[in-house]
Each structure stands twice: as C-alpha cells, then as structure tokens.
Nucleic acid binder design. Structure first.
Length: 430
RNA sequence: GCCCGGGUAGCUUAGCCUGGGUAGAGCGCCGGGCUGUGGACCCGGAGGUCCCGGGUUCAAAUCCCGGCCCGGGCCCCA
C-alpha cells in the first residue's frame, strides 16, 4: 500500500540542501542565459497531444502522460519543450527580427521506468535559437550551455555528430525512409552489425560497405571520403560536403573557445526531427548524458508555418544535480540572523519586526522568533545554523537597544537600535 | 516489457536465514536539568496496523502463497 506521504513513482520531493541546490542552479542558468541575451519563454505544462505526436518519435509518444480533459480534449503533459517553443513562436513571435534567442526552465514528464537519473517528472534547462541558418547559432548554444556548466563547476565533454551524412548517403543508395530510421536506430544503440545486415540484405554489399566506412571515418578525412563517392552521391555531393565542412569547423570552433569536444559518428539521436548537426553533453563522472540537442531546421513547417531554421539544446537539471551532489557542491548561504522576541508583548514584537525590516533593506536575511525562554530560542538558533541572534526583550525596549549575540564566538554586545544595521554591514565586510 | 534488490518509529535501520515472551537501536522531535543565554552533556517522554491479504502453527516481523508499492539494471532518453 502506498503511504500518503509518498509521492507518485518516479517523482520526488526536494527539501533542505537539495532544494537549495535546485533553486541555486535554476537561478544561475537564468543568469548565464540572460548574460548571453537569451530571453525567457514560459509555455504551458500541458499541450494538445497532437503537438507532440507530430514531432516526436514513437518512443516518446508512447512514454507520454496522456488524458482526456473534462471537455474531451486529448491532452498530454509535455515530454519536452521544443515543440511548445516552436508552437509559441508560430503564434506570437514569428514577426520578430531573427534570430530569436530563447531560454526556458521547465519540468517535463515521461512515463518511463524510473532509475538513477531518470524520473517521470524531470527538469530541463533549455536554449533555442530560431531563424539562424549559420553555424554561429549552434556555437552560441553550446558556448552558453558550456559557460553555464563551467560556472557551476561541471566538467563536460561535447559529442558532436551529424545526421545529414547518414541520411544523404542512404538517400543516394536508395534506402527507404523507414529503413533509414531503423538503421539510425541501430547505430544509436551501437548495433552497427544489425544496421549493416539490414542494408546488405536489401541494398547490396556496396551499400553496407559504405555505411560501415562512414561509421568509422575520421572527421579530418570526411571531405576526402565524400570526394571518393562523388559519383554515387551525384548532386547531393555538394550539400553533404558542406555539412562535412560545417561539422569540422564546428568542432574546431568549439575547441578553439576551450570546450572539450569530440566527433562521434555513432551519435545520431535517431528519433526526432534533427536535420544536421547534433550534440550531446557528457559530464565527468556520470555515464548518462546531461544534455542533448541539435539542428531541427524546418520544424516550423511541420506545424504549418513557413520554413525557419532552428537549433537548440536541453540540459537535464536532475542529472546535473547528481553530478554536483557527488562532488559535494554546497550552496553558499548568505548571512542569516534570527531576532528573538522575548515574550509576546506588542511592543517587543513591533521592535523585532522593525529590526528585521531594517536588516532586510540592507539585504540581510532576518526573521523573528517569538519565544519567552532565551535558552530555548538560542538552542533553536544555533541548531538552525544562524550566525547571529538578536535579542529583544523588556530590557532592550526600556533602553532602546538590542542585544547581539555572535553564535560562533559566543560573544555578546549591546547597542542602540540605530546602530543595528551598521553592525552587520561591518560584520559582512570584515 | 524483462531482470535483480527491497518494504520494521519522521529518517537510517537491527531482528528474518536457524519460528518463541512486552520488536530494539542511532539520529530527529518534545519536555526537564537551566523563569534572560545556545551548541555539548545527562535524564525523561511521545512516536509502530513490522506494506496488504490469505495459509501453516499452541505461537508468525520471521516460514509458504498471492497481491500492492518503492529502488536499481537492461533498453531508451534529459
């Protein structure tokens, strides 16, 4: 039987240090995104099921939370945010000058079997750029993501792939769209043999040989490789050569700005509507990826808009938290003081509240505890980790003073109320 | 969907294999020692359908069967 105190499977409560960490990381993401001039976007947690059914692969659709609302609409909890961003763009932002840089912080839902780093409710930190064909957009995305990860102390590696290679070659070799999806699916799973076998049986030995070579080809040799198959590729040759060039200069560019990057031919992220460059972010010390994204040019068309370029990334906040927790990351806590109102007379309480307001105006965290016994109040204060306790009781009211106790040193001083803020400003700066 | 491990106080858990008396402990919480001075310490207290149901037995947290729930692995993803 489920206890009432237990949240549904695959969801969790964040309390204490975990909640602090969560809020800290969300704040820092927003900070970095804004510094890079991304604008926030907030979209609904629920969407029409069809929005996702159109874009995402079978896997995602099957793992969605779907239900009928009271009016019989088929609604889904979002499994990801990109579809919503594109929808919102088509409705509200299409007239804006391009490119449009957007960021979001959003919880998503997938009905998977929960395990380490995989929850049914999870948080994504996302960046999207709409309306920029150039590689600069992808660099901007990854640079921003990387700047964030570095800021919070997560060492990371970016793996880069490009689905356009496989698609173009397979187009040239006459591989059907469905078979292409299957091949990419196999490659994604690391089952090159299955992919080869499929291609061999249906499209011949030559085709499977090329597929294999493509899988192992070095990025530096890619252009050369494409040149070797100039005849086969025909007029696709120039397009794919361009993609190869783009991929190479993309990785070079990332490397030149100090990002750890590697080309990974087996990276295909087969499901969604990725059209070119794709990337995945691995954090040091975690098998799971902490982020992924890529180009999805033309997704706007699928939703009935005009063609637009777009690219983006989503970082998994829950997984980033795992990395940081293992590293022993601690959120810095600012100065917190507690004001002990000794007794419950209106005068004392008023003085205590006024003191807290004065401290707040200087950015100091202060709260009032009403408690007639000093020993209890101080016990609470020290166990709660306050550095200072300010005592206000009868004596203090009579003399217009406050008693400040430094809980670390055990020292205690008394001063006039007017000197309260200055005391803590001095404490802060020393 | 498949595979493994679990479910005993708010939390972490001992006990289960090898059946026996009132189910223990640590942490936390509350109170007192201490009516204007904390942490530490000492004393005391509250808090349990031992996941649920059935079976075996004089007797079940413990053994058997069924179910529910949770975590982790495969796969896939963030």
């Amino acid at each position: 039987m489920v206890k009432f105190t237990q949240p549904p499977r695959g969801t969790r409560d964040l309390v204490g240090e975990e909640a602090d960490l969560f809020i800290d990381l969300v704040g820092k993401f927003s900070e970095i995104a804004r510094l890079n001039d991304f604008k926030p976007i907030v979209t609904p947690t629920i969407e029409y099921f069809d929005l996702f059914a159109k874009k995402s692969g079978v896997e995602i659709v099957q793992s969605m939370y779907v239900f009928q609302d009271k009016a019989g609409r088929t609604i889904a909890l979002r499994p990801e945010v990109t579809a919503s961003v594109i929808r919102a763009y088509l409705r509200n932002l299409y007239k804006e000058p391009k490119p449009i840089n957007l960021f979001y912080i959003a919880q998503c839902f997938r009905y998977d079997e929960p395990q380490r780093g995989r929850y049914r409710e999870f948080w994504q930190l996302g960046l999207e750029i709409i309306g920029d064909e150039s590689m600069a957009a992808d660099i901007n995305i990854l640079h921003t993501a990387s700047e964030y990860l570095t800021y919070i102390g997560v060492k990371h590696l970016v793996q880069v792939g490009n689905v356009a290679f496989y698609r173009s070659f397979m187009d040239s070799m006459g591989v059907s769209g469905d078979d292409q999806d299957l091949v990419l699916h196999y490659i994604d799973k690391g089952l090159l043999n299955n992919a080869e076998k499929l291609v061999f049986e249906k499209y011949g030995e030559e085709a499977s040989k090329i597929l294999r070579e493509l899988y192992y080809v070095d990025i530096e040799r890619l252009s050369e490789f494409i040149n070797d198959y100039r005849n086969l590729l025909g007029d696709r040759c120039s397009k794919i050569a361009q993609e190869a060039e783009k991929t190479l200069s993309f990785t070079d560019a990332l490397r030149s700005i100090g990002i750890n990057v590697e080309y990974s031919p087996s990276l295909v992220r087969g499901l969604a509507y990725y059209t070119g460059l794709i990337y995945e972010v691995k954090a040091e010390g975690l098998d799971l990826s902490v982020g992924g994204g890529g180009r999805y040019d033309g997704l706007t068309e699928i939703y009935g808009g005009s063609f637009e370029y777009s690219t983006g990334i989503a970082l998994g906040l829950d997984r980033i938290m795992i990395v940081l927790k293992e590293k022993g990351y601690v959120v810095k806590t600012p100065l917190r003081v507690i004001i002990i109102a000794l007794g419950s007379s209106t005068e004392i309480y008023r003085a205590a509240i006024n003191a807290s307001r004065a401290l707040h105006s200087s950015g100091i965290i202060a709260s009032v505890l009403s408690e007639p016994r000093v020993s209890k109040a101080l016990s609470y204060a020290s166990r709660k980790g306050y550095l200072y306790a300010i005592i206000i009781g009868k004596k203090e009211i009579e003399t217009q003073s406050v008693t400040i106790k430094d809980l670390t040193k055990g020292e205690q001083t008394s001063l006039h109320v007017s000197g309260l803020v200055k005391y803590f400003k001095d404490a802060l700066s020393s």
